[in-house]
Design a binder for these strands. Structure first.
Lengths: 376, 376
DNA sequence: GTATGCCGTGAATCAGGAG
DNA sequence: CCTCCTGATTCACGGCATA
């Protein structure tokens, strides 16, 4: 499903939209037309430098990231690799394009410095605070409970895309901060291979990509991921009506990603459009319900008493009877009331039963109890 | 109050403990004896565009940054500055010493990369998540709601100090994570100048230093801060019974810090003492249990879960199911595990009840403490 | 069905002393 | 430097079996 609007006359060859390309990402990026991509999301090897085995206190062995693609012989080799793939990525970006890179303390400082050296302009560093990280089993360090993302425009003068209101709406009316609390990818979202083991050691959660793509792209944009893995970037891009290009060296990952993408459905246009939303007071943002996939964009909500309906949108706002806004605003408008607690007012349908949103909020609160109330 | 234990015979000059030194931190650090400091906490200038007072190695002043070439050249100057002060800091550290550096996305990637280049070994990067950050007024970026700290040992082989139990206790019994939620410094803690304005633009909260110093130093350690500012590092070090050395170029800040430190009182020893890790306790060989007659040769031991049995021998070894060896080796062999703590694994029977061996070890330890109490 | 509990597992630079 | 040996150490969540 290649889109004609992206096949510009000045392109050497058309962009291979919504495809997964096999091979070395530097070579492939250099073969694509310059200045043709809106956003790059990159999850490069972290260069973990693990030594021996690690066992949990119950003597079970930790299944570590020991794959060959994460092995580098020195910082110099890793730096050269970083320099090359970032230069290729920068060439591909449109002048107003931007890049996201995710990493840990093993590699992120080297990536960040090289981004600056090449003239990228850092907008924010963003902390993914994991609600359920793996503990430090030996008690020798702090629990490594976060990863770092860098969001950078192609240059200081780029007119980068930033959907301030959409992110604010996802955060229920409060400005989105630079620290994002999201669970790691497990459960049904975690892809398995034929043997039932994890298909990829470092699959990222869709909620993370949801926030990145909603916040820094527009519908129809081209999003490229040079380290595609199991295709989370492509899956979320497709759901949100963006075009993707995936590059992945390992055939096994490409196959998993292709199967995954064939099952992904685009949300409808109403759900994808982002809007303005105003301030709300409640602590748990309704947007998290969307990002975590507890409700899908486009799903219908029903009012208390079943007199009204509304549709969920990708940025965590509702649209119902020509009224747009937060779950509280739309509820209040439809009831002609000065205010409304959307959490108890709105219900969703599961197996024929109507369930109030507040159930979902309670679930999120239970998950987050490890974070917020503690004097951490 | 200079402590004699730190005045080693091989020192060129004694350490100026609990003083604030005026001048350039690189020169001053290079004048102090090498290998004499336990911990360095550094809050370097974040970004040369804002400071404008950075100089090239030849002492020429760096002009304002407005194009890509100057931007790159200013990064080079900042990198040279970082290289120099980190090298001076590294020379000062004891072999088992460590460093903390705090920064933002403007500078932290360059600092982190240089730390790795110089052979420091990163233990964790830590996110200070501000519970009350300044909003992004223009709505052009995410609210910059965090700062990044890097905790690194002097080298990969350093036996760094990490008070795991103390931090776990601070966190209500759950191991401390790498993301710390702490409010910014304001209210009564925020120091004011004579005009009533804030005395320093980036005063750090004492809560942050409290966690750093409790977690990665011992009482009596020497903590050096080469960018002392208003002396938060010194104030918390003094409260917690550590010695400090402050270096600060600006006289106005030195005066504020000196006044502040004169008012700080040390907590009493009981308050400063923290939970000791089990591995810091003296080692008791299992043979002592036999020698003291607490168990008799030939007595039977039972595994956790009662699935296995073994018999005690006169030399303090066990024999069970044709396996001979220490309490740990036999336990590991019977469980098919890579390792096993025999003290908690094996139980003996008294009056029908199963009692773990560890009870006997605790008795021996209690008796020995009357003889040779260990300093905490 | 519901409540309870056990088991598995996640990007991890995860030991230290004696001989 | 090496080897050997002791023995300390985990949080959140999903899935499944049991009661």
């Amino acid at each position: 499903m290649t889109k004609t609007k992206d096949q510009r006359a000045d392109s050497v060859c058309p962009l291979p939209l919504n495809q997964i390309l096999g091979g070395d990402c530097i070579q492939i990026m250099n073969s694509l037309p310059a200045g043709s991509v809106d956003l790059i999301f990159a999850d490069p090897p972290y260069n973990l430098q693990l030594k021996g085995d690690l066992h949990r206190p119950d003597n079970s062995r930790v299944d570590a990231v020991d794959d060959h693609w994460d092995q580098f012989s020195s910082f110099a080799v890793y730096d050269a690799f970083t320099r090359d793939w970032l230069a290729a990525a920068r060439r591909l970006l449109k002048p107003d394009g931007a890049i996201w890179v995710i990493g840990s303390y093993h590699n992120i400082f080297r990536v960040g410095a090289e981004l600056q050296n090449q003239g990228f302009w850092i907008m924010n560093d963003v902390i993914w605070r994991k609600s359920n990280p793996m503990p430090n089993f030996r008690g020798k360090r702090l629990t490594n409970a976060h990863e770092t993302l860098i969001w950078a425009a192609k240059s200081e003068t780029s007119k980068y895309t930033f959907n301030y209101e959409a992110l604010k709406s996802l955060n229920e009316g409060i400005q989105m901060r630079s620290d994002w609390v999201l669970p790691i990818c497990n459960g049904g979202e975690r892809l398995k291979d034929a043997a039932g083991d994890k298909a990829h050691p470092t699959q990222k959660p869709e909620s993370l990509l949801h926030r990145v793509i909603v916040g820094t792209t527009s519908p129809g944009d081209v999003v490229l991921d040079p380290f595609f893995g199991t295709g989370t970037t492509g899956a979320v891009a497709k759901m949100l009506g963006r075009d993707y290009i995936g590059i992945e060296r390992e055939e096994a990952y490409r196959e998993v990603a292709a199967r995954r993408l064939s099952r992904v459905r685009r949300f409808d246009a109403d759900a994808i459009a982002t809007t303005r939303a105003k301030r709300a007071e409640i602590r748990i943002p309704f947007g998290q319900v969307i990002e975590r996939g507890m409700l899908r964009p486009g799903e219908e909500l029903f009012s208390l008493g079943n007199r009204h309906k509304a549709k969920v949108r990708a940025d965590g706002s509702l649209i119902g009877n020509d009224v747009k806004g937060s779950i509280h605003q739309v509820g209040a408008a439809l009831e002609g009331a000065p205010s409304c607690n959307g959490w108890t007012y709105w219900h969703f349908r599961r197996e024929g039963k109507m369930i109030p949103l507040d159930i979902l909020r309670q679930q999120i609160r239970a998950e987050m109890e490890g974070d917020a109330p503690r004097p951490n």
